[in-house]
């Protein structure tokens, strides 16, 4: 029982948490861009699957991880264009289109997997890269500075996304079309173009989220590899109050509790496994319930824009 409080165990939990948080961070930051521009994309999980498949397949046949990453980006972009076409240009109901996109991604990735790969295979993906000096610090180095490039990328994405949204003219325009598209339009901001770009950025990041599973963390692909992680990512956007820093804490909370429960089981702490498994979800729901008091979602979320209607 006392084992839980050993330094090595705490370090192990944090190392696991950082790995587990990675796909959530990519996907949830991507969804933040989408939602900040006023589009709810519930198809994140489907896009992750397509991204995971595309990158895995390319690495399998070429052995080049960078080409694999590029494949995930292109796959994400195509899915993003499809979502934008349906929800922005054709103004379809966003929730339904997103679910449609999810099913499309799930079906297509399974089909392609069966026809081109067929059975479970593994690849050599992104390997851990120890950062010089920092990586040699005892304990801390192992926790934070000995991961694959895609893990570092996910954490660098947080300040980058914050900077884009809060400090650039472009971020201001994204937020404006999500808050009051008519006002943005009246100032010459091209609402549809901003939404297309934001949804596509979101989809590209979802594609990378998939790649972070299939060619970095797991190095394998199978049907429904993501197992609904994309939906948790969407929930994290609400949890994080549409802010990158909020999403970081949400993702870390979820993944730390998950890592914690795995360690509890490994160390043989006497609690039923069912309870341990429930822990991260219960805690996340509890935190979400507390957090909803301060939630302020983009005012034009889920609303198509048509000029002259107000």
């Amino acid at each position: 029982m006392n084992d839980v409080f050993q330094l090595s165990v705490i370090a192990g939990i944090l190392t696991s948490a950082i790995r587990l948080a990675t796909p959530y961070l990519y996907a949830a930051i991507g969804e933040t861009f989408s939602q900040r521009s006023g589009v709810v994309n519930l198809g994140v999980d489907g896009i992750m699957l397509i991204g995971a498949y595309a990158s895995f397949y390319i690495v399998l046949i070429t052995g080049n991880i960078w080409l694999g990453l590029l494949a995930a980006i292109i796959a994400g972009l195509l899915m993003g264009l499809l979502m934008s076409l349906i929800s922005v240009t054709l103004k379809a109901e966003q929730g339904i289109s997103g679910i449609g996109l999810y099913m499309f991604g799930l079906g297509l990735s399974s089909l392609l997997f069966k026809t081109t790969i067929g059975t479970v295979k593994t690849v050599t993906g992104f390997q851990s890269v120890k950062i010089p000096l920092l990586g040699d610090i005892p304990v801390v180095g192992k926790i934070f500075f000995d991961h694959s490039l895609l893990v570092y990328g996910a954490f660098l994405l947080i300040p980058l996304a914050w900077w884009v949204l809060e400090k650039t003219t472009w971020g201001l325009q994204i937020k404006s079309v999500g808050q009051n598209p008519a006002a943005a339009d009246s100032l010459g901001v091209n609402v549809d173009r901003m939404r297309y770009t934001s949804v596509c950025i979101g989809a590209i990041l979802a594609g990378i989220a998939g790649a972070s599973l299939s060619i970095s963390l797991l190095n394998l692909f199978q049907e429904n590899l993501t197992a609904g992680q994309g939906f948790i990512a969407v929930a994290l956007v609400y949890f994080g109050n549409w802010k990158p820093q909020g999403i970081l804490w949400g993702a870390l909370l979820f993944s730390t509790v998950n890592a914690f429960q795995l360690w509890m089981q490994v160390l043989g702490v006497k609690i039923p496994s069912d309870i341990a498994i429930m822990l991260p979800y219960v805690l996340t729901i509890a935190a979400l319930a507390v957090a909803t008091n301060r939630v302020r979602q983009p005012a034009a979320l889920n609303k198509p824009f048509e000029r002259g209607e107000s």
């Binding site: 587990l20 599973l213 797991l218 199978q222 429904n224 590899l225 197992a227 795995l262 498994i277 429930m278």
Partner: peptide, 14 residues
């Protein structure tokens, strides 16, 4: 360890 999910490979790997 039990992960509670037949399909969550990421958690199984972790």
């Amino acid at each position: 360890t039990w992960t509670g999910s037949f399909s969550d490979v990421a958690l199984m790997t972790e």
